[in-house]
């Protein structure tokens, strides 16, 4: 078989793995919906969870697609399609592919034509991410068992504990938004772009919340996060033009 980064057989192999990943998600979705019915969760709540999660996911999913397009120049479409659908993120895959392409003595952006170079990149990308795939099945029950023990000992602390973890994660990302603000002192205002975008998104979220409660537009609550995300992202276009 003559190798090509976009050889149909690569799409078939990737398609099989993607089908398995989709099947897993559908399986867990059906199980959770059945259980929801059994323990009496209102079907309207389940329906809303499904629609708002689906709508919220569209913008981030399109940005994943942008990553596939970016990586497809060197690696063809099949490999980035797999790597960004299963575990990968654009930053990781770019670094992993970049490191291996560099180790092969090639330049990132040139299309790979040699099958052994392709297999080398493939192994580096696969071994690099495999740790999460191996450890999650082995450790999840144990880690969650530990959490349950803490909660059973002190229920109130159990609730505070999970909230504190969420806040810890959110605060790290808020910190990141401000990482380049000090550049403003040197006359470079690009560091303020993420801060302004975050502010727009936060204001939109607050307005959605107010509309939902004062004007009784409760549907607004269900879509507040996707609305603030998309308007925040859209605002980045004029804000970047203004501050760059």
């Amino acid at each position: 078989m003559t190798f090509h980064v976009n050889h149909p057989i690569l799409y078939v192999l990737v398609g099989i793995i993607i089908a398995a990943v989709l099947a897993q998600s559908v399986y867990f979705l059906v199980r959770a919906m059945r259980r929801a019915k059994e323990i009496g969760i209102d079907s309207a709540v389940v329906r809303k969870t499904i629609t708002s999660s689906a709508i919220f996911t569209i913008a981030p999913a399109v940005s994943v697609l942008v990553g596939v397009v970016a990586l497809s120049k060197s690696l063809g479409v099949a490999l980035p399609w797999l790597r960004l659908s299963v575990i990968g993120s654009l930053s990781y895959e770019t670094i992993a592919a970049g490191n291996s392409i560099e180790a092969l003595g090639m330049t990132f952006g040139d299309q790979i034509t040699d099958p052994s170079a392709y297999v080398t990149v493939l192994w580096v990308m696969t071994i690099g991410i495999i740790i999460g795939l191996i450890l999650t099945p082995l450790l999840t029950k144990r880690i969650q068992g530990g959490m349950k023990k803490i909660e059973n000992r002190d229920k109130k602390w159990g609730e505070i504990l999970t909230n504190a973890m969420f806040l810890g994660m959110i605060s790290a990302f808020l910190g990141y938004v401000f990482c380049d603000v000090s550049l403003a002192f040197t006359g470079d205002f690009t560091g303020l772009i993420p801060v302004c975008v975050m502010a727009v998104s936060a204001v939109v979220m607050a307005i959605c919340g107010l509309l939902a409660t004062t004007c009784k537009q409760h549907w607004m609550n269900d879509y507040a996060l996707p609305i603030s995300l998309v308007l925040g992202m859209a605002s980045a276009i004029p804000i970047t033009a203004w501050l760059s």
């Binding site: 913008a59 399109v62 975008v197 975050m198 979220m205 996060l225 992202m233």
Partner: peptide, 24 residues
């Protein structure tokens, strides 16, 4: 997807996401 005009929107996805989430 590669239109330069859209670049800033995808670049700023995280601030746009965490701004809204932080308010809640």
């Amino acid at each position: 997807l590669e239109a330069p005009v859209l670049d800033p929107a995808f670049d700023q996805m995280l601030p746009a996401l965490f701004g809204g989430l932080a308010v809640v």
